[in-house]
Computed example of a mutant assay.
Amino acid sequence: MTRTTTPWLRRFHEAAPGAVRLVCFPHAGGSAGFFFPLSGALSPDVEVLAVQYPGRQDRRQEGCAQDVETLVAESLAALSHLDQDRPLALFGHSMGAVVAYETARRLGTPPAILFASGRRAPSRTRDESMHLQPDEVLAADLRTLGGTDSELLDDPDILRMVLPAVRADYRAIETYRHTAGPPLACPIRVLTGASDTRVTPEEAEAWQHHTTADCAVDTFPGGHFFLREVQDEITTLVRRELGALARA
């Protein structure tokens, strides 16, 4: 059963008392439900909380955030209402990796680990303007990435509902620019797809410049949404890393 801890956070499964907490940040156009399978696979050893951005699903009547800074500020506010008696880890996919990283930079106590999935290092920029393109071009980009069921994208009514959130998220991440500051003090585990055109091996390796701790890159078969193709392998990796935190 889904439980709402705040409008920004969803808990899909129960966790054991004192379990490591993993906060997950979805991709552009994505929702908290993207992490439902991971939550189920890690429960009850890990408490998975998934961030629900405004402008989609049960928050579709709310205005979408227009920049990463707003997503970070609201996520931090939501996290501040949680108890602080357990280890905290962050997981972000694509745009979510940047939101998770910027959230980690602003936490009073750094997270135990940051999982950065499907995204180049924050300091590596590309000239992108998909958020300015017509709806049909935006929809075609979603089809290319493969993160949204093609049958949904072929339904005009559903497409009209989802595109405003997608466009807002694209605007947020495409206008994001990294600002200089101290690197994180926590390990970063970078996950990337071997055939993901949005992240080159060099861009993935560049995450090492954003932490003073260890940074490891794991490459999996698949494209931008490789997480869906190798779900068991990702679950095993996350469980192993978080298990080490719990033992520590």
Results as ranks from 00 to 15, higher is better:
Met1Leu: 05
Met1Arg: 06
Thr2Lys: 06
Thr4Phe: 07
Thr5Leu: 13
Leu9Asn: 09
Arg10Ile: 07
Phe12Gln: 07
His13Thr: 05
Ala16His: 03
Ala19Phe: 01
Val23Lys: 12
Phe25Leu: 12
Phe25Ser: 08
His27Phe: 14
His27Val: 03
His27Lys: 09
Gly29Cys: 05
Gly30His: 02
Gly33Lys: 01
Gly33Ser: 08
Phe34Glu: 01
Phe35Ala: 01
Pro37His: 05
Leu38Ser: 02
Leu38Glu: 02
Gly40Gln: 00
Gly40Tyr: 00
Ser43Trp: 05
Pro44Trp: 00
Glu47Asp: 13
Glu47Arg: 08
Glu47Phe: 01
Val51Met: 09
Gln52Arg: 00
Tyr53Asp: 08
Tyr53Phe: 05
Tyr53Pro: 11
Pro54Arg: 05
Gly55Ser: 01
Arg56Phe: 00
Gln57Ala: 08
Asp58Val: 03
Arg59Trp: 03
Arg60Pro: 10
Cys64Leu: 13
Ala65Ile: 05
Ala65Phe: 15
Glu69Val: 14
Thr70Trp: 10
Leu71His: 15
Val72Arg: 12
Ala73Asn: 08
Glu74Ile: 14
Ser75Ala: 14
Ser75Asn: 13
Ala77Thr: 12
Ala78Cys: 03
Leu79Trp: 07
His81Tyr: 06
Gln84Ile: 00
Gln84Ala: 03
Arg86Asp: 02
Pro87Phe: 04
Leu90Thr: 14
Gly92Cys: 09
Ser94Met: 11
Met95Asp: 11
Arg105Cys: 09
Arg106Leu: 06
Gly108Val: 10
Thr109Leu: 14
Pro110Cys: 11
Pro110Ile: 05
Ala112Gln: 14
Ala112Asn: 07
Ala112Pro: 09
Ile113Ser: 09
Ile113Glu: 14
Gly118Thr: 02
Gly118Pro: 02
Gly118Phe: 05
Arg120Thr: 09
Pro122Met: 15
Asp127Lys: 03
Ser129Asn: 08
Ser129Phe: 04
Ser129Glu: 07
Met130Asp: 04
Leu132Arg: 13
Pro134Ile: 07
Pro134Met: 06
Pro134Tyr: 03
Asp135Val: 12
Asp135Asn: 10
Asp135Gly: 02
Val137Ser: 14
Ala140Ser: 13
Ala140Asp: 14
Ser150Tyr: 03
Glu151Trp: 06
Ile158Trp: 13
Ile158Ala: 15
Leu159Glu: 14
Arg160Gln: 15
Met161Trp: 10
Pro164Ile: 07
Ala165Asp: 12
Ala165Glu: 13
Ala165Met: 10
Arg167Lys: 08
Arg171Gly: 13
His178Ala: 14
Thr179Tyr: 04
Ala180Met: 08
Gly181Ile: 10
Leu184His: 07
Ala185Thr: 12
Ala185Leu: 03
Cys186Asp: 08
Pro187Arg: 06
Ile188Thr: 11
Ile188Phe: 04
Val190Thr: 07
Val190Pro: 08
Gly193Tyr: 04
Ala194Thr: 09
Ser195Gln: 11
Asp196Ser: 14
Thr197Glu: 09
Arg198Asp: 13
Arg198Thr: 11
Arg198Ala: 12
Pro201Trp: 03
Trp207Asp: 11
Gln208Ala: 10
His209Ala: 11
Cys215Glu: 12
Asp218Cys: 02
Gly223Arg: 02
His224Pro: 04
Phe226Glu: 01
Phe226Pro: 01
Arg228Pro: 00
Ile234Ala: 07
Ile234Tyr: 06
Thr236Phe: 00
Arg240Trp: 11
Gly243Ile: 06
Ala244Asp: 12
Leu245Gln: 09
Leu245Asn: 08
